[in-house]
Design a protein around this nucleic acid. Structure first.
Lengths: 139, 139
DNA sequence: TTGAATGCAAAAAATTTGCATATTG
DNA sequence: CAATATGCAAATTTTTTGCATTCAA
């Protein structure tokens, strides 16, 4: 996190209280929707943050590369720190359960995309939808 | 599509004009946001469909398994017919370009998830984010 | 006939924007 | 001091819901 602060400054981006609190919330939550981030910072002792600040901060941090997001469920974008242990999400379409596997599981796919398309994929936190053992059995 | 109609009836689901038009729009468009579907049906000669009907129909068709959706970009869910040629989407975080590769490219990953977690993944139309050759070169 | 879907209007969510003010570097 | 970010209010955009009416089977 110390380096995150460094990079923010290096990029001319300001290290404000709001951003520190949002980063702290993400660190603590792991993954969170903008709404969940708002709820989290609301309980850290500081004043509530308007949603505009939440959105703008997440965007800024994402542009910087320290935060990214995926769509785990139907509607909400889920943000997380890039430094957060990287894994892919196995989202069950039946019960909604979310399992994880190390991103390395996708290394062959990544290599293939690189080789055939010159595409440098970021499969960190990628969401893969399907059916978990239990729901699959029930079908 | 004939079988789609059959299955709809078999499931006790009704084959209405609205649904036929929405299916036709998806067939024609390939991928489309609810908004794009609305725009498409608005030009097929019939009356405009209220967004509530668009949403409810897409949900119903998705539940049936004939339609599914992914999140290609930041905000909009993109729907497509399950029968639509299956591929994974390579979405560039830089320029937004969307390339495709056959879903088979992910077969190793699918096998791994199956083997280690009993998870039956549907990688059809899965979105993979990253950087295309050009944007990567520009970084 | 009768349950399923539609259409419409209104409500609820989610996200974005403008602008004056406060803060950071 | 100058540029950047915040806070707040308002506007957009997107999605959902209730309910009377219509339609498919």
């Amino acid at each position: 996190m110390a380096d995150l602060i460094e990079v923010m400054r290096a990029k001319g981006m300001r290290v404000t209280a709001a951003r520190r609190r949002i980063i702290a919330a993400l660190t603590h939550l792991g993954h969170a929707t903008p709404d969940a981030v708002a709820a989290a910072v609301a309980t850290d002792g500081g004043p509530d943050l308007p949603s505009s600040t939440i959105y703008r901060s997440l965007d800024a941090l994402e542009e910087l590369g320290f935060v990214s997001h995926t769509h785990l469920d139907h509607r909400a974008p889920t943000y997380h720190l890039a430094a957060h242990a990287d894994h892919v999400h196995l989202v069950c379409l039946g019960c909604g359960a979310i399992d994880q596997m190390p991103s390395a599981a996708a290394q062959d796919l990544v290599a293939l995309m690189q080789r055939e398309r010159g595409f440098r994929a970021d499969v960190t936190h990628m969401a893969i939808h399907g059916w978990c053992v239990d729901c699959e059995a029930a079908r």
